[in-house]
Design a protein around this nucleic acid. Sequence first.
DNA 1: CATGAATGAGACTTCATTCAT
DNA 2: CATGAATGAAGTCTCATTCAT
Lengths: 208, 208, 208, 208
Amino acid sequence: MADAQRPARAENGRRDLTDIAIDCFARYGYRATSIARIADAAGLTKGAIYYHFKDKEDLLFAAVADRLSQFERSVTAEILPLADAVTALQQTTRVCIEHATKSNHRRFIVTLMVEAMGTNARLTEQFRAMMHRFRGFVRDIIEFGQKHGVFKPEVDGATAAGIYAGAVMGAEIQYYQDPESFDLERTLGAFLEQYVGSLRVVGAAEKV
Amino acid sequence: MADAQRPARAENGRRDLTDIAIDCFARYGYRATSIARIADAAGLTKGAIYYHFKDKEDLLFAAVADRLSQFERSVTAEILPLADAVTALQQTTRVCIEHATKSNHRRFIVTLMVEAMGTNARLTEQFRAMMHRFRGFVRDIIEFGQKHGVFKPEVDGATAAGIYAGAVMGAEIQYYQDPESFDLERTLGAFLEQYVGSLRVVGAAEKV
Amino acid sequence: MADAQRPARAENGRRDLTDIAIDCFARYGYRATSIARIADAAGLTKGAIYYHFKDKEDLLFAAVADRLSQFERSVTAEILPLADAVTALQQTTRVCIEHATKSNHRRFIVTLMVEAMGTNARLTEQFRAMMHRFRGFVRDIIEFGQKHGVFKPEVDGATAAGIYAGAVMGAEIQYYQDPESFDLERTLGAFLEQYVGSLRVVGAAEKV
Amino acid sequence: MADAQRPARAENGRRDLTDIAIDCFARYGYRATSIARIADAAGLTKGAIYYHFKDKEDLLFAAVADRLSQFERSVTAEILPLADAVTALQQTTRVCIEHATKSNHRRFIVTLMVEAMGTNARLTEQFRAMMHRFRGFVRDIIEFGQKHGVFKPEVDGATAAGIYAGAVMGAEIQYYQDPESFDLERTLGAFLEQYVGSLRVVGAAEKV
DNA sequence: CATGAATGAGACTTCATTCAT
DNA sequence: CATGAATGAAGTCTCATTCAT
């Protein structure tokens, strides 16, 4: 009935579909996104989607998995040569801010994660694992810093990682909710300063 | 005549309905909670719900408003005689932890807030205002501390309040997601220590 | 929730209710008028209406009967001393135009009559009888004219009455549908002229 | 698999659905016709209706538009080669009578037109335009007759067209309401005679 | 007489999903 | 691979009606 842009979008494989799906999920939430909407956005019919994915959940999982691995790869890629724990934390924070402000995929992950909590066991498990990995990643940085004498050894790395993950996610949500008046960069900048400050061995050379 | 599993639930007014509704919303999310489910839980028929509330959104709003004002009252009630900024922050944190762990209403608020973001303008606005008030509340405590020479005057109260709100919310979400392995109390305890530590004027008498 | 005008409207008897009901029915149609709307308009609750009327249909019947007898009384009252058939037709037409343009009760009758056709046997019967009476009334006038030698004796009074009733009703409907651009008075005036012209005995003294 | 009472009704497209819908609307009125009833009559499920039409109103519009254009085509097709104004009026009347008595679609149009008045702006507009076109059509015939010296030049074509349209519609309604005792053919025949008689130039050759 | 609360049936609509072609 | 048509379950909401107080 209103199809003038179909030809350009033909032969999308699974991959392209998850990209499109994630955009929709991010914009409207999982429940509020109908298969028809995704099909429309992809220039396909609903039937075509069912060719590629068993059902809506399957599509969601594929989309989430895609996005998650993409995000994690981009974090580890930029930070892996961690010569310095403080710098690693700074860079991690910067990557999070970038992802939060540059596209809505990150927002989708957070939104969906909360939406899925208690609603969808399988998905919740996936997100739980993701958060677990993220905290592990931060803990590794912290323990790396402790090993090199930059961070206080008495701090519990796991707890500190939980604080970090929470602070970043909480700030992001406030930003998503109110992008005009909540300054994500400044908030996370100030947080990082205090966070690193409280981790660092007193008397160590200033690096921030 | 229609329901024998919930005997003593006849005389619910509007108020009782919002309580029941919030439980359902908290457990399954807003979209996934049908009016029928709420009616069932209340031992009524769907029609009865519509007698009390214009539509599902109206019920949601009433429920959210109830819960919000209840939470805010409980926070201000316990903290108002703030003789001391540090104690006020501690108590605020304690109240948050309590609300987060003792019932699922708080979880509902957070979940719904995220679920509503971008989906429901009116609700988003309500939540935006709520977060705004909460940050304002924390900022007041901080500025109170600054006025009394307990907190560093160079810290920006608004930014610090954003950090606090985010850290608490982010920790809560991690807890809701994984209550078995995420220790909310310990995480927020450690956060508070570092937070207060970084705010406090160096050399002031230790109070934590 | 929005009741500031209730006291003024208390103790309405059956009579006042039918008046109010008919206004609603006229404005929105029978099906689209809910008991709640009528109750609201009357400043009562739905229960009160059920005290006065067995059910919605009962209220409708009472309202229709009221209106019908009122209209018929007003027609017969003005026309009965029919010294002259032509004048009687003119006056009948004038009364119809007045009723059609001065209030919406007449419109209600026509609308409802059509809406009820085939939908509600009992009501249809009532309207059938009403139309029957109306045609009988007109036929009486015509036959009166024939008896006095003013109208052609070869004309069938019943058929002519059907023409008249149809022309008036059809013109009214066009007027209700498009009051701005359909001139009811001029149309019925022209119709009457042609109608009387074709009924009148050629050569009889002009009276229009 | 779900319905064994209507065997040969599988391959209905949009077009067939409007036909079925119009039958239902004509029989029970718009409001009183549920989607379920139409679906049943079509041997489909409700969902199928919503596949073809956005909502009930959409279906109604499609149905009305279908029927209207069909009627108008059938009128213009039979009358266009109007060699003679009187014959044209006779044929128009005959077509109206035929449509009114042979199927209930015409009845539907009239019923719905009245039912929609004041209730549904968009539909009312559609019907207003239809009546406007119909009157225009009749006026054209009359002016054609005037141009050829058959009809009195002093008659106002627009007003006369309004009389005609009203008389036909009013007679139809009386017939729909009481098909047993109201003789549509005779009534409209007599009307047409008087109508043409009053339009015709006195002294012109008789043609009726 | 009247109200407030509730019922229950039925309406419209959406949507994930299936399947013949 | 993909579409168009369809299903069926479920959801939101409306409304005439009832009834204890």
